[in-house]
């Protein structure tokens, strides 16, 4: 348990720093940035207390906001993603989630991609809607959501498969 907590703390700090120092400054094609800090929310242990999980996600989002002067945009998106995560888990993993036995280390890549994609799109849609905050710019919101989501999904899947320890 201690090991799990330690790993999550390290993941929290590393992802936050990677986000604000590297990923916020990529600006691919002018405006496309990946938001990889949500990997923390994806990989948080399933069985742990949900209230703690919500609070941690909120804190992470707030820290990213602090660094990027964006009010509460990331915090709102992160806490929403954390709240809907059980639904995403159920729809992507089905039986595994029912038995509370998901190990992110060894799950098949198909359901992982489905899980990450759904979560990323929800997160990005909320984030860009709040950031642009103008319904008449709906096309801009959708465009940014689409391109940033593609970037985030590819990076997240790569990072998760790269850093997961296969125990067979």
């Amino acid at each position: 348990m201690n090991n799990v907590a330690g790993r999550n703390i390290v993941r929290f700090i590393v992802l936050l720093l990677a986000q604000v120092i590297l990923c916020n400054h990529i600006n691919f094609l002018g405006y496309i940035n990946p938001y990889i800090y949500i990997i923390f929310i994806f990989l948080f242990p399933v069985r742990d207390e949900r209230l703690v999980f919500l609070l941690l996600s909120f804190t992470l989002g707030m820290m990213v906001d602090l660094f990027s002067d964006s009010g509460g945009v990331h915090a709102a998106a992160a806490v929403s993603l954390a709240y809907v995560r059980p639904i995403l888990l159920k729809s992507s993993f089905g039986m595994l989630y029912e038995h509370q036995s998901i190990k992110f280390n060894n799950i098949d890549i198909g359901s992982l991609i489905a899980y990450i994609s759904l979560g990323t799109i929800i997160h990005h849609l909320i984030m860009f809607s709040l950031e642009i905050f103008n319904i008449s710019n709906i096309l801009l919101i959708l465009k940014r959501t689409l391109f940033s989501s593609i970037f985030t999904i590819i990076l997240s899947v790569l990072l998760i498969t790269l850093f997961s320890r296969k125990r067979k």
Binding site: L54, L55, F58, G61, M62, D65, S70, G71, G72, V73, A75, A76, V79, S80, Y83, L130, E131, F133
Partner: peptide
């Protein structure tokens, strides 16, 4: 939490 974030936004 969502309301706090929304208020800040």
């Amino acid at each position: 939490l969502f309301s706090i974030a929304l208020a800040l936004t």
